[in-house]
Nucleic acid binder design. Sequence first.
DNA 1: CGTGGGGTTGATTCTTATCAATTCGGGTGG
DNA 2: CCACCCGAATTGATAAGAATCAACCCCACG
Lengths: 243, 243
Amino acid sequence: MAQVLPSSCIVHQFQKFAELTESEITLLQALEKDPRKYDSDQPMVTEGGKGERFFTLQSGWACATRTLADGQRQILDIFLPGQILGLREICFDRNLSEFRTLTEVKACPFPRQRLTEIFDQAPRLTDLFFLILAREQSMLIERVINIGRRSAVERLAHFIVEIKLRLNIEADHFTLPMNQTIIGDTLSLSSVHVSRTFKVLRDKGLLETSGGDIRICDLDGLIEISGFDRHYLESHSNWARQD
Amino acid sequence: MAQVLPSSCIVHQFQKFAELTESEITLLQALEKDPRKYDSDQPMVTEGGKGERFFTLQSGWACATRTLADGQRQILDIFLPGQILGLREICFDRNLSEFRTLTEVKACPFPRQRLTEIFDQAPRLTDLFFLILAREQSMLIERVINIGRRSAVERLAHFIVEIKLRLNIEADHFTLPMNQTIIGDTLSLSSVHVSRTFKVLRDKGLLETSGGDIRICDLDGLIEISGFDRHYLESHSNWARQD
DNA sequence: CGTGGGGTTGATTCTTATCAATTCGGGTGG
DNA sequence: CCACCCGAATTGATAAGAATCAACCCCACG
């Protein structure tokens, strides 16, 4: 419990962008000092609620969703360990989206205030928060393109590849803690069509599914079929003040 | 020419979030001291190009686009005067999207370096850049929902309302410098269907079109039909360090 | 052994894309 | 002034893709 996997703490995410000083690390770790457990499939922050709490995600998966007046749901982000939930809500008094767990989750809530303190005490961390927000935005861009311009098969393939790469694992299989309705809400497809589309990918020999497990048989094939471009996940400049 | 309308300079955008000091204003104005003219429908930054230049937009409209391998195009943002182009690209070595003009444009290019200087000299401006990025992200969220979950009629109505509100004008009519193909590329619709959809809105008495002009006959009707929620444009907290 | 959620499959419908033809309006050259 | 041209918008006909509705299966779980 005291021992945290590198990739599951936010310090690790920040270190992708720059070396951190001891004091910066201390500041960031303070955001993770009060971990709480949340059950699977539970709201962490409600839509329209007061936008004053953020979370660092230590373990488990979470997502951000919006529900429309007619009951349709759109999932906006999938969060993996090491990410910060709610950053973009900072400029609004009320939450624009709901945050909820996809699995059992260990996460640390912290108030907006705490972020202000960090910004005051460590200007360079502000830079890095800026970078992280910019990177999130790039992922959103990719989502717009995925939903707006790609067919169901391309969309699902793209999604699988994105998750696989973000998980940053060697193995060719992983557990996707989302049923096909949830996947549909993410990709703007009906659950029925998600099912059919999985079948197409299986029939093409690109992947196998069993329960919530995905086995990727042909990553290059998936990348090819989905028009996946790694740049938006990978390349980043070493921009940040060097003090 | 020397006289700049308040809403068309970026200082004005920042002042939405917080009062600025003299020196902060000076720093921001330095970003706008080298205005250049760009013709209509021209690239300002190319996709895949070196991601080292940003722009402040003083007059005219611009957009960010991505072109897929098969030639499909998706417009990601519409930029109005006072906005900064390219912020989200800051963490990438190469541009993920192309930036191009929609009208004649007066804009000031500045290198990434300049942004770093500002971040060094005025920590509070860093906060505000962060807020602006967060707000941009909220608009992207809305785009995801628009494209993913709304019908063509809802989508177009939502788009018109968004532009109308962002223009921040009293008048019920304005010139939309985008032909129906461009609008389609923004909303992920074919140009033919944009035409049909405009007809639906006209037939419902919600708006009138002539040439590039839009006259809004029933703003509330458009808001109603599109499920528009002002929050993502309007409400914002006064979060920022108070020094 | 029943129950319920999730996945699969089939049949049908709806929305939007695509292809094709026509019109409209503004600009250009004779 | 008129004929022509061109890009954009419109309209019609058809096709493709995905949603919806409905039935059924599978299986974990009480």
